[in-house]
Nucleic acid binder design. Sequence first.
DNA 1: CTGAAAGCGCTTACAG
DNA 2: CTGAAAGCGCTTACAG
Lengths: 337, 337
Amino acid sequence: MKRASIKDIARLANVSHSTVSRALSGSPLISPETVSRIRQIALESGYRPSAAARSLVTSRTSTIGVVVTSIADPFAAEVVLGIEDAANERDYSVLLANSNALPERELKVVHAFEERRVDGIIVTSSRVGAVYAEVLSQARVPIVLLNNQHPSEFMHSVMIDNFAASFAATRHLIDLGHKRIAYIGDRFGCQSDTERCGGYRAALEQAGLPFRPEFLVPGNGGPDGGATAMGSLLALPNLPTAVFCYNDMTAFGAMGAASARGLGIPSDLSIVGFDDLFFAQFSAPPLTTVRQPMRDMGRLAVENLLKLLAGDSAVPNANVPGELIVRHSTAPPKETN
Amino acid sequence: MKRASIKDIARLANVSHSTVSRALSGSPLISPETVSRIRQIALESGYRPSAAARSLVTSRTSTIGVVVTSIADPFAAEVVLGIEDAANERDYSVLLANSNALPERELKVVHAFEERRVDGIIVTSSRVGAVYAEVLSQARVPIVLLNNQHPSEFMHSVMIDNFAASFAATRHLIDLGHKRIAYIGDRFGCQSDTERCGGYRAALEQAGLPFRPEFLVPGNGGPDGGATAMGSLLALPNLPTAVFCYNDMTAFGAMGAASARGLGIPSDLSIVGFDDLFFAQFSAPPLTTVRQPMRDMGRLAVENLLKLLAGDSAVPNANVPGELIVRHSTAPPKETN
DNA sequence: CTGAAAGCGCTTACAG
DNA sequence: CTGAAAGCGCTTACAG
């Protein structure tokens, strides 16, 4: 049994399908009685307007495309929750796609979004390089990048304030009395990493602490990278007493590696993460970290996207502050040297 | 600048738009030269077919709707990753919606899916009651429930084998020498909970161990529920030496509460979870748990949905085996009593 | 207040 | 092998 169309309703109501269309869309032209009669019939017949037919004429789909590297990444998941909530409130739907960081997938995803004529696109914490930026802009719709480098003036962005948050995280360690503080980063060259590292170095400098190149080691954003990086830090002749990590995942891996070598956290080594994933409160020990308001950032991304869609030409890029959450992975250093 | 349509290509190629349509869709009717000429022009003009226009005539959208309670739930996120991967491989897109366990959201989501004419729907680990089942079936498309009760014969389901997996988990504790084993469940009445509890009791019975009603306490699927439940367990005059938890989240909360009261895990108390979330390896201590192949279950859900869509009337409900993963939250009990 | 007509961008019988 | 025509389910000027 096919779905009822506007024509079916028209027949039942003895009016033209134009009238049905108007009545259902709340046009003030139609008489109140006609409207309620038509609405009643539509309700009874389980009528649902066809979004496809409507968007064919309005050339809007009320859907937004969201690309994440992987929805299984807890950061992305929280952001997407915020996106979907905000979208839903405004009667937008979200088309979700994982790029898996594969260029061919990224391409395919954008094609799918183009064919489905999404009204706008949000890209979350992927590494949007120049090539992908080019591909994305072919979709000719507003694009909001979340925690991404913003390579082009055509793309709006929502970013955590990496510099200030990292400064505060490092400052926390310094205030505790640490003088030998290391930084485990992401893969080299990613903008967030550069900015977080910048905040770390600025805090060191402001406190008059020397910057030691051997205390700066790259990771890969995951626990394995954190573990490996911690390994090379622990091979140093002079160990750090504290480590600021690019993100929580990195910190989890780093803590695991340090514990495995018999170091107590925070007694021997303090650790700070970045993100405040849900699990940061359950790690061993609960992690001191910088909270990113992930859901709010997701919401903000859709709000700004919608403004862009509405033709607002002056939507400023958003810079969102982080918040230091002190838990049990940080403490004063053992000996004051 | 508007997107090129089939008519624009037709004009450029000096053919009718019917020919363009056929050439682009690979119809064998069109001569090879014409096909490649048209394809070339389409490529140059950045042509993308309009999914809306196509689905208006084919009445298929190549879109599947996915409802989760919350995408921020790591279980749901892993499942959705599997769903999206499998869908993408078959050139389907996924429309994602969070119900937040709110009836009005559930209703709205289904309406959105209906208007967008999704080809099928997957509902993940929500509590699909009779009312929602009714609402869902109004969409008149195939529905696959993942780890949900299957209230109607019209809905296909993919389920973890709760009974066997819980039996194995409890059996592991028994083999370790535990005789006083508690179970922290989900909210009362959920089917997964009933089945997991069933496996627990069957293992007890098979080992000749008495079932103690006071060792059976409900949670709520989250860490807070696990913590509360652990609290009431620890108030008992005779403590259990091991606790099997409904899921990992519950176990995390339970472990936290036990540790907070000075109990060593696993020295004083063994804990087993269910799910094997990514973080189970990073908890304090790393959690012994039952692994659900979440991504594969997601993939299976779309495979079966697509079979249903293809008109296959005999797609059997899937029962997926879990796998016990032994980590460090379980050990033999202290004193053999 | 209501209707007839055109058109959004496709696919697909029906003719040739 | 190709084209003209109809139609999918809507919205929206244009008339009345």
